[in-house]
Structures are given as C-alpha cells and as structure tokens.
C-alpha cells in the first residue's frame, strides 16, 4: 500500500529526469509521450512504492512535480 503520492504538471516539465533518477523508491519513469513543448514528462510506474517524501518536488527545477504523504483518513 502506497504511503504517498505525486502530482505532475506535465506542461511545466522540461524533461530533465532529475525526479526519475533521484526518486529513492523508483516510482517514476519518463513517459514516451511528448508534452506540448516536446518534452518527455515523467509518469508514475510504481505508485505502490511512493513514500511521499517529496524529494522529486525538491529536485524539480520546473516546479512540475511534488509528492506528499497520504493521511490515514483519506487512504
């Protein structure tokens, strides 16, 4: 059961890959799809592994992704 989740704003992404590389639990991969500016934004490939640590949000230079820990009440 995932303890966290991420939100991705695809159109802000410039495809640097920081979030994918430095996600401690390897939740993300770059999507083969292009966004409107032609970049490959990340998508979630292992949602159950997300701890909601928000390291992706700390790394993302484009303010395009962030993570949060799920509260029990909403799980």
């Amino acid at each position: 059961m995932a303890k966290g989740a991420v939100e991705i704003i695809i159109e802000r992404c410039k495809g640097c890959g920081f979030c994918v590389e430095f996600c401690p639990t390897k939740v993300l991969a770059l999507s083969p799809a292009f966004n409107a500016k032609g970049y490959h934004a990340p998508h979630v490939v292992a949602s159950d592994k997300c701890s909601g640590c928000d390291l992706c949000g700390m790394f993302c230079p484009d303010f395009a992704i962030h993570g949060w820990r799920e509260k029990k009440a909403s799980a």
């Binding site: 410039k14 495809g15 640097c16 920081f18 949000g57 700390m58 790394f59 993302c60 230079p61």
Partner: peptide, 11 residues
Amino acid sequence: CPGCGIGTTVN
C-alpha cells in the same frame, strides 16, 4: 533551460 539547477535552488 532543461536541466538547469536554478529552479531546484528555488525549491
């Protein structure tokens, strides 16, 4: 640019 770190420092 893509891969520039300035935005990361802003976080």
